[in-house]
Design a protein around this nucleic acid. Structure first.
Lengths: 359, 359
DNA sequence: TTGACTTCCCGAAACGTTTCGGAATAGCTT
DNA sequence: AAGCTATTCCGAAACGTTTCGGGAAGTCAA
């Protein structure tokens, strides 16, 4: 009872009022003016639900947060949501967020979203190389965009070039003189885990070095701590640890402390994410900044284009991450000449070597 | 065209099909069985939009994330969303998330939510003592629940008793022998900032101590770093720093490092949030765990009760936070006898004192 | 047989919008 | 004067659901 209210008080039909406000051509200029004024006067807002029913849409985009062990508070998702929020609002779309742990529960939630017609499109993050969510969405013919590539491809996606970043990071460590560079990775079925490992491995091969020791687990501080321990206790002790995420790297830094090793000096550590804590870790962490906001913006572009009818198959973008050098990496300990200058600057600030409990 | 599809293929009326699936009493058991079977067969799902239009609801709950400087990735919101997501889904409600920076933009977004009838209820976090969002929601008669109390009160709210936690923390430091306890707080117009400061101040008064030095800013690592610097450079140098949040505390720990002071030994630091990083800070941070999931659950209870028609005015709950002692606090440096035992364990792990760039 | 009461079902309206297919009026051409 | 076009408006249907107010049988008692 709202379009009709304007219609009645102006002696017009509902149709005309609708078309006047909708900006259609077949309504007299004078009439449109009167309608607009009356609409403003009574504070008319089109009921979005009626509009959706009529239009057969739901004007909403869905996203599912991963929960579960070690997944608390991944800042990535917050930044993603914060980045696209205003633009979605501008486009008249709602962002519907729910949460599930990876696996069956998660897929069930996607089904719910789709089958209950709650969303017109979805944003998929934490993409796996072979991802049943993506197979499902494709089968359901629902527009979507992923953060991260899949093996199959052929869908809209934005990805950060983790392979390049980690190749670059490895080259940096090689240039620093490191010869045994370990890797602390995320599970390889995640696309991001896969490509980062691939970058590390390929750079080692290019440099003619044997592959260093590697361990993989869900990216949490605790796992980083544990895996670094394992690597440092192994037969070939790495002088550098490349970590798939900052959270892993933070844990690794502590493992160094436990072993009485100085980060950036005895062992170099490089992370990825450039999270706020990386700057305030025990030793400020050299990391890669992925420009989440930029990626989020492109994902939204792709989503809106698909909702406007375009085919998403050809949409994909690979973006770079930029190195943020801090204190956690440096020359390999066995190269004495090159190390001198840095060693001095280290003396100034003295060194830290303290074992820590895992608490 | 869906209820009607079942109706047609069964030779029933739409009404009867609807009432059969709705579980009403006036449909024969045999008929209900047939309807349910056919519904299952064709995979019928009620169109939520039609249902909403008819019911005059929107079956959605809104929440606005704060963005802006130093607000990136507050894990609080993720944990909140993750905690309530499944239960909302179960209740058939969507969670609509958007984002805005505090202030005019934020209020405008609330208005948009309400006036465009996008939500039936809202969740308000980052509550200020005098909060125009709350005044607005009350005026608009939209159910809501806040995380944090307001001065006015009279609405559904869940809060963690920050005053009690910070009184307790202060008493702990006093018992450790500290006599000058500084405070690094959040702005006092935030409820959480206000009560935490009040707890600190009242405990000092109760202990017969003069109020220590205090500084306030948006809770970020950077601000914690800056404010701790100021406090340590001030005329009365505190031997302990109580920080309103872990992020402030992490920054403060670094300021200690800059000044060549050993956390937990020369200067004690206590934070609040028990965030994942607190366990992996330069020195593992003594903190308070607020049980966000528990609070989120209660908030949802209140929201659902209000959507079921109850008045939210009397709903409010004050919950406790629990201390998680780690390594960043301990006896005051001037009390020698009591310190001995801890000093030894410190020697083992050696000390860290290194200036850092803010990078 | 009649009336009342149960049991089971249904038509129509309503939620608020958009759109299809006209229809009425006015102006212009021939 | 008749036909044609352009302009401006409108009625009705449709989106899919729920609910109001019956109504048609069947059952039971008087």
């Amino acid at each position: 009872m709202s379009l009709s209210r304007i219609a009645i008080s102006l002696g017009l039909s509902v149709t005309t009022v609708s078309r006047a406000l909708g900006g259609h051509g077949d309504v007299a200029e004078e009439t449109r003016r009167r309608v607009e004024e009356e609409a403003r006067r009574i504070g008319y807002r089109a009921n979005p639900i009626a509009r959706r029913l009529r239009g057969g849409r739901s004007d909403a985009v869905g996203i599912v947060l991963p929960t579960g062990p070690g997944q608390f508070g991944e800042p990535f998702f917050l930044r993603l949501i914060a980045a696209i929020g205003p633009r979605l609002a501008e486009a008249g779309l709602d962002l519907i967020v729910s949460s599930a742990r990876s696996g069956a529960e998660e897929l069930a939630l996607y089904r719910q979203f789709v089958e209950n017609r709650r969303v017109d499109a979805m944003i998929v993050a934490r993409t796996r190389l072979d991802d049943d969510r993506i197979a499902y969405l494709r089968h359901a013919r629902l527009p979507f965009v992923t953060h991260g590539r899949t093996r199959a491809g052929g869908h809209a996606s934005v990805d950060i070039d983790g392979a390049r970043a980690f190749r670059e990071a490895t080259q940096r460590l090689v240039a620093f003189g490191h010869r045994c560079i370990g890797f602390i990775g995320a599970p390889l079925d995640y696309g991001f885990g896969f490509f980062r490992e691939a970058g590390w491995r390929s750079a080692l091969a290019e440099a003619g070095l044997p592959p260093g020791p590697a361990r993989f687990a869900e990216p949490s501080e605790e796992n980083g701590h544990r895996l670094a321990h394992e690597l440092l206790a192994g037969p070939e002790r790495p002088t550098a640890l490349l970590c798939a995420t900052d959270r892993l790297a933070i844990g690794a830094l502590h493992a160094l402390g436990d072993a009485g090793l100085r980060p950036g000096y005895d062992v170099s550590v490089i992370g990825y994410d450039n999270s706020p804590v990386s700057n305030y870790a025990a030793t400020p962490l050299t990391s890669y900044d992925p420009d989440i906001e930029g990626a989020a913006g492109r994902m939204l572009d792709m989503l809106l284009a698909q909702l406007a009818g375009q085919d998403g198959a050809g949409m994909n973008e690979l973006r770079g991450a930029t190195l943020v050098p801090r204190r956690s990496d440096g020359p390999a300990p066995d190269l004495n000449g090159q190390m001198k200058s840095r060693a001095i600057s280290r003396e100034e600030r003295s060194d830290d070597e303290r074992p820590h409990d895992t608490a």
